[in-house]
Nucleic acid binder design. Structure first.
Length: 288
DNA sequence: AACTCGTGGCC
DNA sequence: TGGCCAAGAGT
């Protein structure tokens, strides 16, 4: 039913792929793993400079493993979701301790590393080692929802039907290239808002376009609020720790958020998550 | 299953 | 202007 997608999308990718450093032939499995973690919920444009700096600073898992976790958090900068930096540091230590310093190639081994879920395990196994997997990210889900199912957006949570569809489309030859091509199409053409159907290689067969691009009519998609939340408060507090060289007095943290109960809750959360350390003298710093 | 977890750009 | 969204994962 979704027979004719491969050739047009692969041909489109050959002409339109972005030149990204983690796609270069000399990119290492470690570099690819770092890119995949950084790209979780984060646009390419913001990842690029941080990835380049990280790979110069820590070109191997062993190099990062030799650092205290706080250094990973510090150099994470403002990428967001800083526990990813902690996870990456824990990955580096696990790879160094348990995998002879080499990023594992198998999905199951990757999946056991901290911060590596289904998508990232499939992506690393596929892009770093040429393994054949269904790589199901938000881009792929959206492309398949439109091109095959005829709906503007995929369901909120991945369904078994989506997974079966994605698996049925994995080609026998060069599965990694198919995976990256569909992702790229979703990122550049079949975007969430204002899709560029005029530039789409599968527009002629797209079920959603042929149906007249009907608007999404599924269950309410809950938006993300941010202003005033614990997340924003945590971000403010962590920025203070990140930009300081050593430990900071609590007054420096108190100064960036007015609501004291919320501030204390957020700070406790950062400590509980391992993103901050409370010292006996009442100061705080990134984890050592 | 629903909720939490950062940040910034875009229309 | 502000809601929406971005190569998700953990609980």
């Amino acid at each position: 039913m979704a027979a004719g997608l491969h050739a047009p999308i692969l041909d489109w990718y050959a002409e339109n792929a972005r030149d990204l450093p983690w796609r270069h032939p000399d990119a290492t499995p470690w570099g690819i793993l770092v890119s995949e973690i950084m790209l979780q919920q984060t646009p390419v444009a913001r990842v690029l400079p941080v990835w380049i700096e990280w790979m110069e600073r820590w070109p191997t898992p062993a190099a990062l493993a030799a650092e205290p976790p706080g250094e990973a958090v510090r150099h994470w900068g403002r990428l967001g979701y800083p526990r990813r930096a902690l996870n990456l540091h824990a990955c580096a230590r696990a790879i160094t301790a348990d995998h002879d310093g080499r990023v594992p190639a198998g999905y199951d081994e990757l999946r056991r590393l901290p911060g590596i879920g289904d998508y990232t395990a499939a992506a690393v196994a596929s892009f770093a080692y040429g393994r054949s997997h269904a790589v199901l990210d938000t881009n792929v889900r959206r492309v398949l929802a439109r091109a095959v199912r005829g709906e503007e957006y995929p369901p909120k949570a991945t369904t078994t039907a989506e997974r079966r569809l994605a698996e049925s489309l994995v080609p026998g030859l060069d599965a990694p290239r198919w995976a990256v091509a569909v992702m790229e199409l979703g990122a550049l053409v079949c975007t969430a808002r204002a899709p560029r159907c005029a530039d789409c290689p599968v527009a002629v067969s797209c079920a959603w376009r042929l149906a007249g691009r009907p608007a999404y009519d599924g269950p309410e998609r809950r938006g993300q609020t941010y202003a005033g939340t614990d997340r924003q408060c945590r971000g403010r507090l962590l920025a203070v720790l990140r930009d300081a060289h050593g430990a900071v007095p609590k007054e420096a943290l108190d100064a960036v958020w007015d609501d004291a109960p919320q501030r204390e809750r957020a700070l406790d959360g950062l400590v509980a998550d391992g993103l901050a350390e409370a010292l006996p003298d009442g100061t705080y710093r990134l984890p050592t």
